[in-house]
């Protein structure tokens, strides 16, 4: 049983006439990598900002490490964040930027900054001015800034935005390392869904400020994997037939659809058996979904990549 690290309860944020986040309740356990999926402007950044203490919720509350309300301010230092672009002094070196945060955090351990730079692979560029850094290096330094003080929770908002493929792989490996070796819980938002699926253990789908679905990685894999899609007016009538044929790995998706995740070559046999039992079917086919298609279907709109 994993310990719950963070939970939000009916979190809402309104800006004058616009509701950026509406009634969102999520639970994140210790050691998870929680992927926030949503289009641009869906409310991912605002949600992360509220969790990180950068903006106040209009209503609802957040419980982090057992603290909620004003008490939560006391332990906000346990959260490291990279929201939107990395917030760095570009006229200073990577070392000095990290030094500033170390001073603020009260860390003066010798070699600490070098250790963090090593973690994100920037040790050799430590004395280079940030203005001379590539986008990927800035993102990695942004993550390094978030890591100062050994946070329990890391909030990363679109950390792979604008990176080249090599940069994306580097960031991905860094995050997986941090999660595995240091047991840091991560909430990461992105609209590059395939990439998010490579690191996250749990997903929250946000659209128009609302959480529309929460899934584990296994559940998402099942939902997107290749399967027999059986459409019929009354799926409950088909279930005894499927049981009799020895199918165990199937799911009634809605009032007209069953997904079967095994023996994909047996679709013809299934159709014949249902016909013999005079159970009408609308269609039967082998289908699969990409992560993006699944998301698109869920929000019923155009995906904005």
């Amino acid at each position: 049983m994993m310990n719950e690290l963070l939970s939000t309860n009916s979190l809402t944020k309104k800006y004058k006439h616009q509701t950026a986040v509406s009634d969102i309740s999520i639970n994140v356990c210790q050691g998870e990598i929680y992927g926030l999926v949503g289009k641009n402007g869906a409310g991912k950044t605002t949600l992360l900002k509220m969790i990180g203490g950068l903006c106040k919720p209009t209503s609802g509350d957040i419980t982090f490490m057992g603290y909620s309300g004003k008490e939560r301010r006391k332990i906000l230092s346990r959260i490291g964040l990279l929201i939107e672009a990395p917030s760095l002094y570009t006229g200073m070196t990577a070392y000095d930027n990290l030094k500033l945060k170390c001073i603020c955090t009260g860390i003066n351990k010798k070699g600490y900054i070098e250790e963090i730079l090593e973690t994100v692979g920037l040790c050799e560029a430590r004395n280079k001015k940030v203005s001379q850094y590539s986008l990927g290096m800035k993102q990695r330094l942004g993550i390094a800034m978030a890591l100062v003080g050994e946070p329990d929770l890391l909030l990363l908002d679109e950390p792979i935005n604008g990176l080249d493929p090599q940069g994306i792989v580097e960031i991905r490996n860094t995050l997986l390392d941090l999660n595995k070796k240091k047991n840091i819980t991560i909430i990461i938002s992105s609209h590059i869904l395939e990439e998010l699926s490579k690191v996250s253990t749990k997903f929250g789908f946000i659209n128009n400020g609302e959480l529309i679905k929460e899934l584990s990685h296994t559940e998402l894999d099942i939902a997107c994997s290749e399967h027999i899609e059986l459409e019929m007016p009354d799926p409950t009538r088909a279930l005894p037939v499927l049981d009799r044929l020895g199918f165990t790995h199937y799911q009634v998706v809605d009032s007209h659809t069953i997904h079967i995740f095994e023996r994909l070559e047996d679709s013809g046999h299934i159709a014949m058996e249902l016909s013999k039992c005079e159970i009408p079917i609308t269609s039967i086919s082998v289908a699969s979904k990409t992560f993006e298609n699944y998301f698109l279907e869920m929000i019923g709109g155009v995906y904005n990549d």
Binding site: G52, G53, L54, L76, S77, R78, I79, L81, I83, E84, A85, S87, L88, Y89, T90, L100, K101, C104, T105, M145, A146
Partner: peptide
């Protein structure tokens, strides 16, 4: 301009 306070707001 650079929003550095975001890095340390929790402190």
């Amino acid at each position: 301009r650079n929003g550095f306070l975001k890095n340390i707001a929790g402190q």
